[in-house]
Simulated scan of single mutants.
Amino acid sequence: MKSPLESMPKVVVIGGGTGLPVILDKLKNEPVDITAVVTVADDGGSSGKLRECAGAVPPGDIRNVLVALSQLPKAQLDIFQHRFGASDGFLAGHPLGNLIITAISEKYGGISEAVATLSTLMHIKGHVFPASNDTLTLSASFTDGTRVSGESEITHANKLIKNLHLSVKNSDKIPMANSNVIDAILNADQIVLGPGSVFTSILPNLMIPNLKAAVLKSRAKVVYICNIMTQKGETDGLTDAEHVKILNDYLGAQVIDVVLVNQTEVPDMYIDKKKWDEISQPVEHDAKGLELQNCDCILDNFLKLENSGAFHDGEKVTQKLMHILGQEGK
C-alpha cells in the first residue's frame, strides 16, 4: 500500500529568483508532493561575493526556496533571512542564511548535503535540490556581436540576447544535474517553469543537458507561468508567445503544454520604476502566437500589487496549478 505522500501528485517547480518562492509558499499548503529545482548560476549580490571568496555554490535562491517551503515559525525564519547592514564591514549585505548554507556546504562536502541538512532542520514541506552540485557560469552573446559572462552582467548589459552558453565555473566539465533532480522530473505529474527571468532564472536550469533530456522524456504536463512584466536588457518588447517560443527553442521541441498569463491591467502610476529598476512594461498577450506554439493559454487575474510593484498572486496561481492537476477541491 502506498503511503499518503506516495499517492500525492508530484509537482516539480524549476526556476530561481524572487518569483519562485511566491508560488512555493502557497503550493506547500496543497496535497501535492513538491520538488523545487533551483538555479545555481547566480553571481550577483551576496551570492556572488560568496561564490568568489569562498568558492561557494550561490546560496541566495536556495535560501529563499528553503524559507518558502519551511514550516518553522516566522520568527525563526526571520532570523535566517536577516541581512547585515551596510555598516557591518565584511558582513555587509549578506543574509545570515547565505552564510549558514555556505558553512554547512563546506563542513559536509557540498551544496546538496547542505540543502539536505537544512531541509531537515527547517522542516521543509517537499524537496529542494540545487539544479547542479557545481557552480555554473552563464554567458551570453548579444545581437551586436559582444559577449559577457555572468548572470548579473547579462542583466545589466541592456542588450538583445542572441544566445546563451552554460559552463561549470573554472572547469571544462559538462554541466550535470544530480540523480535526485532527474528522478523527480521523470516521475513528475506536473512540471512548472517560473515565474522568473526566462534567460537568467529558468534557462540556466533547462540548459543542463541531462536535465533538459529528462524534461523532454517526462510525461508530465509542463506549465509555464509567464512573467507579468518584461525585463530591461532581457525581454524588452517580448509577448507571452515569444517568451514561450524562447523556452521551446532552447528545449528543441514544443514542450510547453499550458501557459498562465495575467490579463489584469497593471496601473503604470503605481509602479516605482526606480525601486524596481529591472522591470520594463507589462507583457503583451499574443493569442495567435501562442496557438503557433501549440499550447493552451489560461488568461486570468494573477496580479498582486504590493510594495509599489507588480507580482504574481501566489494563491491564485496555485489554484490554477491545482485545477490543471485535477486536484481542485480535493
Rank of each mutant, 00 (worst) to 15 (best):
I100Q: 01
V67M: 13
F80G: 01
S47G: 06
S47D: 03
A103F: 02
P31K: 12
L24Q: 00
I100T: 09
A68S: 15
A41F: 03
A75R: 11
N29R: 05
S47W: 11
T35N: 02
A36T: 04
P73V: 13
R83M: 08
E30C: 12
A68P: 08
A68W: 11
E106S: 15
A36Q: 13
I62H: 00
G19F: 07
A92S: 15
P58L: 11
A86M: 08
S87M: 14
V37S: 06
S46Y: 06
T35L: 08
V57K: 00
A75Y: 08
G60L: 09
P95G: 09
S105L: 05
E52T: 12
G16A: 07
G85Y: 05
T18K: 06
H94D: 06
A103E: 11
N29G: 10
I34Y: 12
L24D: 03
I34V: 14
S47K: 00
V67N: 06
L72V: 07
G16N: 12
H94V: 05
C53Y: 15
P58A: 05
P31W: 07
S46K: 02
V38T: 04
D43L: 10
A41V: 09
S47F: 06
P21K: 05
P21I: 11
D25R: 07
T39D: 14
N29W: 12
L66C: 03
L66E: 09
I79P: 02
P31H: 00
K49H: 15
L99W: 05
L24F: 09
L77C: 02
P21E: 03
L20T: 03
D88S: 13
G44Y: 07
R83T: 15
L77V: 03
G89R: 01
T39N: 13
T39G: 06
L69V: 13
F90A: 11
A86W: 02
N64D: 06
D61G: 10
G45S: 05
D25K: 09
L72Y: 03
L66W: 07
P21V: 14
N64I: 02
I23T: 04
V40S: 02
A54Y: 06
T35P: 07
S70M: 09
K26A: 07
G85L: 06
C53H: 08
D88M: 14
I34L: 14
G89Q: 04
L20D: 11
P73A: 08
K26Q: 13
E106R: 11
G55N: 10
F84K: 12
T18G: 03
K74Y: 01
A54I: 01
D43E: 03
D42F: 08
K49I: 15
S87E: 04
A92F: 07
L72A: 08
P95H: 02
I62L: 15
L77F: 10
V67P: 04
L27G: 10
Q71K: 13
D78H: 08
T102Y: 07
Q76M: 14
H94K: 02
L24H: 01
G97T: 03
S105D: 11
R63E: 02
P31I: 03
L72K: 06
G44P: 14
V32H: 04
G19T: 10
L72M: 13
V37N: 05
G45V: 01
V65E: 01
V40I: 10
G89H: 11
